[in-house]
């Protein structure tokens, strides 16, 4: 998977499955998912399951911090670092 595809795949999942919208452009890569309330604790459980299944990584609970999950870009960066 290309580097840019990671961002696109994560954004598509969040827009479609968490925000329940179709138009992916509603979510900027650097928009704060936490401050805008897009990502709550219940959605986080789903997102982690998605990231682990899609990218074959394991998300440690110690990694559940804002630096890793603030934006689509930071999530993608975290995925690449695993």
């Amino acid at each position: 998977m290309k580097a840019d595809d990671v961002e696109t795949t994560i954004r598509r999942y969040i827009v479609n499955e968490i925000m329940f919208k179709k138009d992916e452009s509603v979510l900027e890569f650097d928009a704060s998912l936490l401050e805008q309330g897009v990502l709550d604790s219940a959605a986080m459980v789903e997102l982690i399951a998605f990231l682990e299944g899609e990218f074959g990584i394991s998300v440690a609970r110690t990694d559940m911090v804002p630096e890793n999950f603030e934006t689509v870009s930071s999530i993608a960066q975290y995925v690449r670092s695993q």
């Binding site: 459980v45 609970r61 559940m64």
Partner: peptide
């Protein structure tokens, strides 16, 4: 306990 902002992760665990 843990990093600042890691409370949800610690609680979930």
């Amino acid at each position: 306990l843990g990093k600042e902002g890691n409370g949800a992760g610690i609680f979930e665990d």
